[in-house]
Amino acid sequence: MTDPYEMHGSRVIVSVLGEDRVGIIAAVANILSANRINILDISQTIMQELFTMILIADMGQSQIDLATLKEQLHEAGGELGLKIDAQHEDAFRFMHRI
């Protein structure tokens, strides 16, 4: 039997916070597609005058690990003046789902 607490599944949550501008989605999508990471869901909104995008993706086919993805996203975020991060889905699943 698999341990229910070990990270099972390869889904990650990518969050983008900052000032809205042209090319945000393209930049993030490029990084993901270059690493064979499949986008499952995207939603975006303006929260407290801040552009907020949440993207759920599957890393199952990817050749890189989460730490590497985070580095690439941080780098892109730095260039665009945005805060971009990726976290394992379990961090949210544990907090919000029983």
Binding site: M47, D85, M95, H96
Partner: peptide, 12 residues
Amino acid sequence: MFTMQEIMETIT
């Protein structure tokens, strides 16, 4: 799947 609010709550 999660709502935007839930995800933002955790990040905040």
